[in-house]
Amino acid sequence: MPQLDTSTWLITIMSMIMTLFIVFQLKISKHLYPGNPEPKSTVTLKQLNPWEKKWTKIYSPPSLPQQ
């Protein structure tokens, strides 16, 4: 049974790692990152809900019958 020749494995693995590193560096360098972020204003306008526009009567639950 012939033996497996592993003499070229180191060169193959090292070249693969270097190639992956270069490819990832190129992908990252082409990515556009946003500039300096500016804080949003915290002033909010109050919006009226439909139930706040008109007066509604609040009914209390019926009381329990007396024993």
Rank of each mutant, 00 (worst) to 15 (best):
K57N: 05
T56P: 00
K27M: 11
N36K: 15
K30G: 13
S60L: 14
P39G: 03
P62D: 05
L32G: 01
P37V: 01
L32R: 05
G35S: 14
K54S: 13
S41H: 02
P62E: 00
N36C: 13
P61W: 03
P62M: 07
T42Q: 08
K57V: 06
K30S: 07
E38N: 11
I28F: 06
K46D: 04
Y33M: 07
K40Y: 02
L45W: 05
V43C: 08
K27E: 15
L48V: 14
P50I: 10
Y59P: 02
L48M: 08
T56H: 10
N36R: 15
T42R: 05
Y33L: 08
E38Q: 13
T56W: 03
K54V: 10
K53I: 13
K30E: 10
P37T: 04
N36M: 15
K46H: 04
T44Q: 09
P62V: 11
P39N: 09
Y33Q: 04
S63P: 02
P62S: 07
L48T: 04
P34N: 05
T42D: 08
T42C: 11
E38R: 08
L45V: 14
T44P: 06
N36H: 15
N36S: 15
I58L: 12
K53A: 14
K53G: 14
W55Y: 10
T56K: 02
W55A: 12
P39D: 08
Q47M: 09
K30C: 05
P50E: 07
I28E: 11
K30M: 09
E52D: 03
L45M: 10
L32I: 06
S29W: 10
S29Y: 13
P62W: 00
E38V: 06
W51Q: 10
K40P: 01
K53L: 15
Y33H: 00
P34G: 08
K54A: 06
Y59G: 10
S29C: 06
H31V: 02
